[in-house]
Design a protein around this nucleic acid. Structure first.
Lengths: 110, 110
DNA sequence: TCATAAGTTTCCATATAACTCAACTTTTAG
DNA sequence: CTAAAAGTTGAGTTATATGGAAACTTATGA
């Protein structure tokens, strides 16, 4: 479980890095998106923060919390409220979008 | 604030309905997506539940909570944990995706 | 019209997310 | 190496999300 978890984290983080590095210098596409799974939420916060060249303490100041709190959000991410997610990413000037996707309608057969 | 909130809810709900109605019968596009803002989360749950032809009680049974809890999630949605969101939409066989979007990189000028 | 189903609300308990403080470890430059 | 900066951890507090129970209101349809 821990191993699997780690692997997932690494993958997503790498994807992010690739995208990031790939885009430095290319101006016509100056934004990127990535999916956010609950398990990797912490890594997402961390990488966006790094991109913004902020320390945990600085991010904390923007939001109004201690650096330890940021650390916890980046690491022991178990469960988080939407409010917190939005608060953090707003401070990082990143946009979080929740999308609900619904396949296969289930119609009752008459 | 309340008025504005209501207005936003209505709009998003209407969008959803239009999409829904528009799609009934068209098979080639049997899925739809819509954005989920925290303020309208409750409406989202409600409309997907309705599509699944479930009562609050039935949805509650699927998840393992009382109908009153579903009602609360659909109405007084102030703040919710990701876990809860995922739990509900999983029961509704809908997929929630969180996407982080980041525009305008901020590079330090040398 | 009235009985039943569906949904809402209030009061309450409990679990836990959010947070601080301070000590600690790790990283980074000089 | 070594001091400062950055990040982590643990213990403890506070705020609040989750949830149940039950009484209540609002559809629905026979």
């Amino acid at each position: 479980m821990e191993t699997k978890n780690e692997k997932m984290k690494m993958m997503t983080l790498d994807q992010m890095k690739d995208q990031d590095i790939g885009k430095i210098g290319t101006v016509e596409r100056d934004k990127y998106e990535f999916d956010l799974r609950m398990e990797v939420l912490g890594d997402m916060i961390k990488s966006v923060r790094k991109q913004r060249k902020l320390t945990q303490e600085q991010l904390g100041e923007l939001i109004g919390v201690q650096k330890s709190q940021i650390s916890k959000l980046e690491r022991n991410t178990k469960n988080v409220t939407i409010e917190t997610i939005l608060k953090v990413f707003r401070a990082l000037k990143a946009d979080v979008k929740f999308t609900v996707e619904m396949n296969e309608f289930e119609f009752k057969m008459a």
